[in-house]
Design a binder for these strands. Structure first.
Length: 568
RNA sequence: CGGGGUGUAGCGCAGCCUGGUAGCGCAACUGCUUUGGGAGCAGUGGGUCGGGGGUUCGAAUCCCUCCUCCCCGACCA
């Protein structure tokens, strides 16, 4: 490809509304353009990258025995009513009505459609297991689309659905897809981690997410330094190895005027934050309030808290006015002592003694408080986020925390959809049985953003070879003035094309600096420069995208040198 | 949805307070010079100042209203 025949449109300045680096670089490099909130056009350069991601996924899915098909983006309401999700899914489901007043939605996912296809097409256990997949546009009407294609409303996804006669077969395919996903992410050339995940409302026993590691990731991942345990922090069990010591202090009511936050209290009373308790008030079912007690230095995990019986779902903290009305003090002075609502106490909070907590009177706290003595033995639950240094739940090593971007997610669905939609096959006894299902997704467009988020520098994007829109940039200096340069560049360009190298010849009449900047911004991994000065000595110049310095090469060695570079 | 901010040329911004001919830089186009790290000079084109309504002789500017986009969403307990 020659730049003169391509649409290369880069921006020197960063658009003001792009917040994260991948969004900024995707706009500046001319990969995408925004059409409306959460809706993006993939320009020719961006599309080349998207297609690379697709191709890797498609190849590995095919190798793994997946069968590609393509389902409609628009789906009839009837199917969603049958599964119960027409009501459940909420406003994220974009609904529409056709001219006959029939209801449809734009698919945010395709469990209903694939299950319908299955029940029409597959009749016998002999046809199982089977794994269908597609690479297709999804639409989710996010409350707040942001970060460019990272959290867009319309996005490209690979979704696969497997069907099985029993759990063993499902487990086998699930494990196989786990391995396939690992191969796919290896080929992307990205640093990633598979982690245990919350299977959430979708149900089923097993669920793993695949995260591309990047500091800007929206998710936190906890992993052990001595085993392969890795889990989304949402899910990671917080282990408390500490045992409670016997009380030594006596309980005392102290004045803490104007001191509200844990850090203020700890400093004011000269105690460690680990010796304080914080009391959070959550909404229960039927307008009741429920207290959640944590150690002062720990954070509440709302996903865990939501699972406590009696807590309202979705999880919601109580309103400050409501708290004042029912409990008689402001939120900065709450504590579990003589608090007449249900109280749940985190494991670590239950393991401390002689602690400080609010007195349920404004500007008063209590010191030297002890479970069992000053208040009843606690009702112990796991409701906090794990922190760096916690013991690993598998008993091996301690946890570290890194940030990740969720780009893949695999689930065992069990029979949730197959039973709702009555997807059955005949077994070897001629009896009708409900099939088991698995589902396996990869956010194709999100992979592109995640790759940039992980691989960039002050000059722009740094593509791994497997995703690069072009592998090699040829930058001729004075292409339009020097016949020598033009000749050399054109010759080499043709050679590359004949060898099937994805090459971009920059034949724009630009000064070298502008040309180099553009090629670096769009992240081409390898660059060759032809100049009259060099050619007169039968030399040209090579620089890798991450090299500090360029190196001079004899023209005669160039072809072999590039061949080596591209195969490495 | 709630709160905050924002909207002026493709992009980045000034002008608004204190009403009086709509500006700057980049990008684009033309010409000349330049050609190893985002060139210089000269010139050109491009705007319903987010939409609507109002106040006024006169509105980008003041008032009302609708919209867009961005940010934040109790952990201060």
């Amino acid at each position: 490809m020659k730049t003169s025949c391509f649409h290369l449109y880069t921006l020197k300045e960063t658009p003001a509304d792009a917040e994260i680096i991948s969004h900024q670089l995707m706009l500046r490099a001319g990969l995408i353009r925004r059409l409306a909130s959460g809706l993006y056009t993939w320009l020719p350069l961006g599309l080349r990258i998207l297609r690379k991601v697709e191709a890797i996924i498609r190849r590995e899915m095919d190798n793994a025995g997946g069968l590609e098909l393509l389902m409609p983006a628009v789906q009839p309401a009837e199917l969603w009513q049958e599964s119960g999700r027409w009501e459940q899914y909420g406003p994220e489901l974009l609904r529409l009505t056709d001219r006959h007043q029939r209801d449809y939605c734009v698919g945010p996912t395709h469990e209903e459609v694939i299950t319908d296809i299955f029940r029409c097409e597959i009749k016998s256990y002999k046809q199982l297991p089977i794994n269908f997949y597609q690479i297709q546009t999804k639409f989710r009407d996010e409350i707040r689309p942001r970060f460019g294609v990272m959290r867009a409303r319309e996005f490209l996804m690979k979704d696969a659905y497997s069907f099985h006669i029993d759990q063993d077969s499902l487990q086998q395919t699930y494990d196989h897809m786990f391995d396939t996903y690992s191969r796919i992410f290896d080929q992307f050339g990205l640093k990633y981690r598979p982690v245990n995940a919350d299977s959430g409302s979708i149900g089923g026993s097993a669920s793993n997410e695949f995260h591309v590691l990047a500091d800007s990731g929206e998710d936190a991942i906890a992993f052990s330094d001595q085993s392969n345990y890795a889990s989304n922090v949402e899910m990671a069990e917080a282990i408390c190895t500490q045992t409670r010591e016997a009380p030594q202090q006596s309980r005392e009511l102290v004045e803490t005027p104007g001191q509200h936050s844990i850090s203020e209290i700890a400093e004011f009373l000269s105690v460690a934050v680990e010796k304080t308790l914080k009391t959070l008030i959550a909404c229960g079912e039927k307008n009741q309030l429920i207290a959640l007690v944590l150690r002062g230095d720990h954070d509440l995990n709302t996903i865990k808290a939501e699972k406590i019986p009696g807590i309202a779902s979705p999880f919601q903290m109580a309103d400050a006015d409501e708290i004042k009305k029912q409990l008689g003090c402001d939120i900065g002075s709450l504590g579990p002592v003589e608090l007449n609502i249900p109280i749940f106490v985190d494991r670590s909070a239950a393991a401390i003694s002689d602690f400080v907590c609010g007195a349920n009177q404004n500007d008063k706290h209590i010191t030297g408080v002890n479970w069992g003595r000053d208040l009843p033995e606690p009702n112990i639950v796991d409701i906090r986020n794990v922190v760096e240094g916690d013991p690993s739940p598998d008993g091996k090593g301690i946890l570290s925390i890194v940030r990740g971007i969720e780009v893949g997610h695999i689930f065992q669905l069990g029979d949730k959809y197959s039973s709702a939609l009555n997807a059955t096959v005949l077994d070897e006894n001629g009896k009708s049985v409900i099939t088991k299902m698995g589902c396996y997704g990869i956010g194709v467009s999100r992979v592109v953003a995640a790759a940039i988020e992980q691989n960039n520098d002050e000059s722009g994007i740094i593509w791994p070879m497997s995703l690069a829109p072009f592998h090699l940039a040829i930058c001729p200096i004075n292409y339009h003035k020097s016949e020598l340069v033009k000749q050399a560049a054109d010759d080499f360009y043709q050679q590359c094309q004949q060898k099937g190298i994805e090459v971009l010849l920059d034949d724009r009449p630009l000064r070298p600096g502008a040309m180099f900047s553009d090629m670096e911004l769009i992240g081409i991994p390898h660059r060759v420069v032809f100049s009259e000065r060099g050619l007169k000595q039968s030399q040209c110049e090579y620089k890798g995208r991450c090299d500090d310095q360029s190196q001079d090469l004899a023209i005669d060695d160039l072809a072999e040198f590039i061949k080596q570079k591209l195969s490495g």
